[in-house]
Design a protein around this nucleic acid. Structure first.
Lengths: 331, 331
DNA sequence: GTGAAAGCGCTAACAG
DNA sequence: CTGTTAGCGCTTTCAC
């Protein structure tokens, strides 16, 4: 391994001069050229660890994701990665497999690695999270959820839910079924759901059943198999596209037709919703923008600038084949 | 920041003793307890960089992926991550956005970070790759491709192609269309394709058209829109599930029916192929096993053990609704 | 502009 | 078993 000492020696200068050369300090053109040559010859590249030892932090950003096999997580990941690369930062991705405990663990691990900042895609933010975050002195940006006292960025969940609720209501349906998720998930289980329910309650004579399921495709599928035969809903709203896909599959299994037997919609704007038939009405979230803005906000945090506690990214409704007017059936 | 010195001082021992305590050296129970207490009180955790400075390598494995938004990449990623965690290793994921140049770059970056080993999901392995890999002295395991002189692990591509070809042939079709990918991709563009063609050529009186497309959904979709109306094939094989999904969508757009107008199959075993209707015949690859075995092999490499140059993971055919016997149409 | 020297936090002989 | 003593490769004063 070639070190700064080797370079200094070969160039006949002190290693501090090489260090200056490396870090843009003042070095005469002559010395610079000399060192340049040696560095190129040897292919020298400074030892990141030795650098970090002094520097106290690195050009790395850590991101903690609940799962690697989720469309939305990957969209954000791609976007964050791209944005970071422009800034010559490295992304360190760690996966928690949806374990809250592992989230805490990973915050520590990343802090130890001296990442400059952490983006945390938590599902649920506990007191313990807050404690750990305050202990380490690395800025943390919450993504997708909010929590008091922590900086966060996320989607306009209420607005998304509301837009979808309006759409559903405007089609003249009266009986709705909403596949929601557990309330501990503030963003999806509360804000998104509230948006949906608020809009639906603005309609007259409507009946809304709410059923709680999880983000798991399989679980949602099994639940749908059980529920679909019993419900009289003519419009089924699902809290995520994933759940909507599960309901679609269940409908298929049960030989029910969408949108003839019932309308169906999801949330998320997953690509697959446009491929299946019928294509599924959904809300397209701004994952790319979310990733970009997250990085921007995190850097402001790192620089010590003060930013608003919570940033929300807009989204828009995509009306597709899976949702139709209820009037049709009456005709 | 609390350092080993602080601990040593507070415990009234030398820092080397603390170091030994940390690394499982021989320390008396009494001293151990004393240090234990201080460590817990202070929440001390050793500085990874200082450790790495000496150790010359870290408990991190780097993985270079061509894209973050691909099903197969994520399956492997999940599996590698899980396996690594059991060994208390961290995964450092870097993304190349399918740029070969960036692959080279990332190999360097990871080597500089002193990862213990690198898993490279390359699409094409150039001479430059080989050069770089030989320069750094970190073991590299190629995943999904093979190249002479490099250790690799991948799928049984030929066998997969052959199995699918047999299936297609056995259904009595005579006119086939194969959406392949560029030949530079050895695994998919050559081995998989060869498997398909070999099997198909064992049939009599068959006609196989080959059309080259890319891994991009959109590109495949547009190409399919153009090709489908012209072809007389009754069975369309696609090199990936992604391409198959694109063809499915194109068929939909063109109001063609699958499998009535033609049978369709993909490769990969993506979850979505079981959700759409008709469900799509595919080959289920062992992504999980691939990830696990990759880690295992990489660790053998790291330990300096010699392993076979190339390891292949088996897969199996999933017959679904999208492929039916040609005889049907004659009836 | 440049060099000498003092660490950064930790590990690893080497004595004792 | 434990303390002393060198470094690991690099950055950063502080004189010159």
């Amino acid at each position: 391994m070639v070190t700064i000492n080797d370079i200094a020696q070969k160039a006949g200068v002190a290693k501090s001069t090489v260090s200056r050369y490396l870090n843009g300090g003042s070095v005469s053109q002559k010395t610079r050229d000399k060192i340049d040559k040696i560095v190129n010859e040897t292919g020298y590249s400074p030892n990141t660890f030795a650098q970090s030892l002094k520097a106290k932090n690195t050009k790395m950003i850590g991101i903690i994701v609940p799962r690697l096999d989720s469309y939305s997580a990957n969209e954000v990941l791609s976007s964050v990665d791209r944005t970071l690369r422009e800034k010559e930062y490295q992304l360190l991705i760690t996966n928690t497999d949806q374990s809250s405990e592992r989230e805490i663990e990973n915050i520590y691990t990343l802090a130890k690695q001296k990442v400059a900042g952490i983006i945390l895609m938590a599902t649920v933010v506990t007191e313990e999270h807050k404690k750990v975050i305050s202990e380490i002195d690395v800025p943390v940006l919450l993504l997708g959820q909010q929590a008091e006292g922590l900086h966060s960025i996320g989607h306009q969940e209420f607005e998304a839910g509301y837009a979808m609720g309006r759409h559903a209501g405007s089609l003249g349906h009266k009986n709705f079924l909403y596949f929601s998720v557990f309330k501990e998930d503030i963003a999806v289980g509360q804000h998104r759901a509230n948006g949906v329910l608020t809009a639906l309650n603005e309609e007259t004579d409507v009946n809304v059943d709410i059923i709680e399921t999880s983000f798991s495709f399989t679980k949602a599928y099994e639940l749908a198999l059980e529920i679909l035969p019993k419900t009289n809903a003519t419009y089924i709203l699902c809290a995520t596209d994933n759940i909507a896909m599960a309901v679609l599959k269940a409908a298929h299994t049960l030989q029910l037709r969408i949108p003839d037997d019932f309308s169906l919609s999801g949330f998320g704007g997953y690509e697959v919703t446009s491929i299946v038939s019928p294509s599924i009405t959904t809300v397209k979230y701004g994952y790319k923008e979310l990733g970009e803005t997250a990085v921007e906000k995190l850097f402001q945090l790192i620089k010590g600038e003060s930013i608003e506690e919570n940033t929300l990214i807009p989204n828009y409704l995509l009306k597709r084949e899976s949702t139709v007017s209820n009037v049709k059936k009456v005709e």
